[in-house]
Design a protein around this nucleic acid. Structure first.
Lengths: 359, 359
DNA sequence: ATCGAGTACTGAATCGATTTGGCATTCGTC
DNA sequence: GACGAATGCCAAATCGATTCAGTACTCGAT
């Protein structure tokens, strides 16, 4: 391993000068700086990060922690875009981004294993996680930003999509197409956004002066299987829905599957709208109409915020709410349903959940 | 931040003793050890990893580098299982596993950004990557294991699925069902395994004494879009294939789509077999028959090997070839095509590509 | 009582880089 | 030519943990 002393020797200066020259910190003669730079490239020198981090008391690195809803590939396909946004800004701001596969983080020891002391300056928490983890993180004093999640009653910065506006948009779209019996396939109560989506659905119904029918509202896990089962039972109703809004695309895929099994044609017999716009949604039969949230913006926002916190700049701030838009494809029929290219309709923002940074 | 000195003070011993007690290294009285342990938990002490890594000259951490074919969610859905296997063994062997989002790693500086000096002891390289990266890695002397990739002519340890046996298995299955015109939808030549899959396909054809028809062999990018296009042209042939083997499930999904567009029913008009068994494959219409490689085993094998290399145990060794099996679902018809539960058929291993560790 | 062999613990050096106070040297000005 | 200021570089301290040589002590055997 080539160290700073090797570079110093080759350049004929002291290690202190090498450090200053390479980091552009102190006062170093231009010619010396040049000599040092040449020696460094010649030796292919790269500073040992352990030494640097120890001395600087900064890792210049942030980590991404994943929650339990990261356990299916369908979710990956959503979060990978978010991650892309994060990577973009961390890099631009001189930080590196590391990522650890989902692991148990129930105990403090687990957390230590995942979150080596001194190796990261902050954490981006992706998706729903145990409240215990968040509390442990908070106790540790590490700057944290929640992404696509929030913890009611605990002041932690959170970047969240405007799921309420998204759900309203989807439902409005179905009503506009003439549907009166619109089913809601929501996430189980253990998921953080169950409330918002149901609220958006309710708002759209109310605006269309349509009474909510409790028989049309189902809440399940957010995967394909449970959504398939829920849709089966919905279609078996004496008065089945003519349209369905599912709060994830994976659930919408389940709904499509249940309809197919039963011989119900989409969109003629059942119109379907999903949410997330994952990669697969463009390839279902018919292609899925869905609500897309600005996933990359979400990642960028979260990373900016976290680094602001780390660098001490940020004080209380309102949680930005990431906008949603409707991607119209083939599962609802209507004027654009037959066209090849998708049409997108932006949502108007609603209520934003205000979340402030904890002291 | 609580340091080892704080623990030492509270336990009434020296930092050296704390270190030994906590790490179980030197000779420490049982009672002292206990006292130290209590002080540590009381203060919620966790060692600063920068200090430890500096002193130990070991990070006890490995990283996963991703290649360019990680850019779609369909691939994620494959690799996430591999990652799970890796995480399992790294944890069991006391290492942590970090992951960095795909980034440019063309230059040495890029590599330094991604691969902080001293922060990892080795790298698992997932999927196809630029040869330049591998060479840079090799030059750096960092232990490396390639996963689902290999570099002809360069001696780097590699764990690879038995794609040849898998392709043969898929093709044999189609022949057994009576098909004579079986199309091959392969990966573009720039992908590392194009040769193996084509070879397996050819072997099966030869065993069935069927001549290869060049018109039925297409090679494209491994995503949905290009496979859709290729299948369209295949179906437009004067004598179209009655069956098709695609070397990724994403491509098979494209084939399904092209068939649907053209009104060709699956499996009656076209039997389809994919490869990879990604999560979505169970939910296509009809559910996709596919070749599954032992993804988790691949990850476990690679991680074991890498850690062996790091710990200096390993010498030359043959690349293990990960077995494949056929998952029979609905896209081929035949006796099991209508059953709900999938049937799996293991492949016999063929040729293994022998790859040995470089000095 | 003395010696030798363990045992339990600690002081000091070390890992590799950064940072600060200070020492020369040069420069500009009167 | 002398003085104050600015410049360029470095010695030494520091970050937090580990490790090794060595010291102090205990215990059993002679």
């Amino acid at each position: 391993m080539v160290t700073i002393r090797d570079v110093a020797r080759l350049a004929g200066v002291s290690p202190a000068t090498v450090s200053q020259a390479l980091n552009g910190r102190g006062r170093v003669d231009v010619r010396t700086r040049e000599r040092v730079a040449q020696a460094a490239t010649k030796l292919r020198y790269a500073p040992n990060l352990n030494g640097r981090r120890l001395a600087r008391r900064r890792a210049e690195c942030v980590t991404v922690l994943q929650g339990r809803n990261m356990t299916t590939a369908f979710n990956d396909s959503f979060y990978r875009v978010v991650l892309g946004g994060m990577a973009e800004v961390t890099q631009a701001r001189g930080y590196s981004l590391v990522f650890t596969p989902p692991a148990d983080t129930a105990t403090d020891a687990d957390l230590n294993r995942v979150l080596g002391h001194g190796t990261v300056d902050g954490a981006l928490v992706l998706g729903a996680v145990d409240a215990g983890l968040l509390l442990a993180l908070r106790h540790r004093g590490l700057p944290v930003v929640l992404v696509d999640n929030y913890l009611p009653g605990v002041d932690l910065p959170a970047v969240i999509p405007d799921y309420q506006a998204g759900a309203r948009l989807a439902t409005e779209h179905l009503l506009r197409l003439g549907h009166r019996r619109v089913a809601f396939l929501g996430a189980a109560v253990s998921y953080p956004f169950g409330w918002q989506t149901l609220e958006g659905y309710g708002e759209a119904l109310a605006a269309g002066t349509i009474a909510q029918d409790p028989a049309l509202i189902r809440r399940t896990e957010i995967g394909v299987e449970t959504a398939t089962a829920a849709t089966r039972s919905l279609l078996a109703l004496p008065e089945p829905p003519t349209a369905l809004f599912a709060v994830t695309d994976a659930m919408a895929i389940g709904a499509l599957r249940a309809a197919r099994e039963r011989g119900v044609r989409v969109p003629e017999g059942l119109a379907v709208v999903g949410m997330d716009d994952i990669e697969m949604s463009a390839y279902t039969d018919p292609p899925l109409t869905t609500v897309r949230v600005a996933k990359d913006a979400m990642g960028r926002l979260a990373a900016e915020w976290l680094i602001d916190l780390i660098e001490g700049g940020a004080v209380d701030r309102l949680a930005p709410s990431v906008p949603a838009e409707l991607v119209v494809r083939g599962t609802c029929g209507g004027p654009t349903g037959t066209r090849a290219s998708a049409v997108t309709i932006p949502a108007e923002a609603t209520s934003t959940i205000s979340t402030t940074e904890g002291a």
